[in-house]
Each structure stands twice: as C-alpha cells, then as structure tokens.
C-alpha cells in the first residue's frame, strides 16, 4: 500500500507495509541516516524526530500513524532553536561517539521551542528519555543553556 509522508517539507510516497516504523522508512527508504537506531522500544531516544513539533520516538511509530503529520528529521532541522542547538553542541563540545546526539539535538530543540528558558529540572525531565552511554549529560545540559541564551538574544534583538 502507498503511504504519503511529509518529511522536512517534502512529500514522499512509499509503497510499503503500514507497520514499517517511521525510523526505518526514513533511514532505509529515504536514505536520511541522521536519525539512529538504538533500541527499537522507544527506550533510548536515538531515533527522535519532530512529529507535528513534538519530540517523538520513531522506532515505534508506524508510517500509517505518521501519515498526514509534519515530520522533521535532523537533516531538516533549520529552525532558530534547531540551529542554536546544533551550534551549541559544537561550542560546548558535547558529542563523544556521537551516535545518540541526533536524538539529543532533536529532543533539546523541541524543549527549547516550547520553553526557551528551561530550568535544570525541566531539562532533566525533557532529556531523560535520551540515553548517552558516553555520559555527555553535563555537556548536553550546558549545551541547552548555551542555545537558550543564543535564542533569547535573537528574540531580544
């Protein structure tokens, strides 16, 4: 059956089974490999994309459920917050192995898009679904605060 997916602003038609998770549709069929596979159970957050603006674990979201939604992957992350987070990740030297970081960036961006000045507790609540075995948590937190400053500076200006 054919499914129409709107990903990073473009419509893609896929003739696949409806239970295909969005993650694998994007990775294997659309060749956008920035979103990662880590657990397949919505436990680690490596596959996080924005679905209608909400940080979503796409390893368990079937394309039949994703049809009709606005989907953004790391490749299409061009919002003010998204750019600020990506830059902050470089400035705070957040990544180590980097495998989880697309998901971290997507979760962090979704947080900042709904709350541009999060407290430590709010950051922890929003980010504890994203595992990083390299243990970059302190720098993720610093990176989010750096990005928040950059976003708020833009808004003030």
């Amino acid at each position: 059956m054919a499914y129409r997916l709107k990903i990073n602003g473009e419509i893609h038609e896929l003739d696949v089974e409806g239970d295909l998770p969005l993650l694998w549709a994007v990775r294997d069929y659309l060749n956008l490999t920035g979103s990662k596979f880590g657990c397949g159970l919505a436990q680690c957050g490596a596959c996080t994309m924005h679905v209608d603006g909400v940080a979503t674990r796409t390893c368990v979201l079937s394309i039949s459920q994703a049809e009709g939604k606005e989907i953004t992957t790391i490749e299409g992350l061009t919002s003010v917050a998204g750019k600020a987070v990506k830059q902050a990740w470089v400035d705070a030297q957040v990544p180590q192995c980097g495998y989880c970081q697309s998901g971290q960036v997507m979760s962090a961006t979704a947080l900042l898009e709904s709350n541009s000045n999060p407290t430590d507790a709010e950051i922890e609540a929003a980010m504890s679904g994203n595992i990083c075995r390299c243990g970059t948590y302190s720098r993720i937190k610093s990176g989010i605060k750096l990005a928040a400053q950059a976003i708020n500076a833009v808004e003030v200006a």
């Binding site: 490999t33 990662k36 470089v90 990544p95 495998y99």
Partner: peptide, 20 residues
C-alpha cells in the same frame, strides 16, 4: 580547539549503521 570528529551535531557523521 574544535574537535576533528565533526558531523556529530547534525546527523552527517557516518557510522556503520549508515553505510549503504
């Protein structure tokens, strides 16, 4: 000193999982 293993902030770094 900026790290040289770039592309880990924007999904462009290539891992085995991404090889096609």
């Amino acid at each position: 000193l900026a790290r040289k293993d770039a592309g880990k902030n924007d999904g462009t770094a290539t891992f085995t999982q991404d090889v096609k």
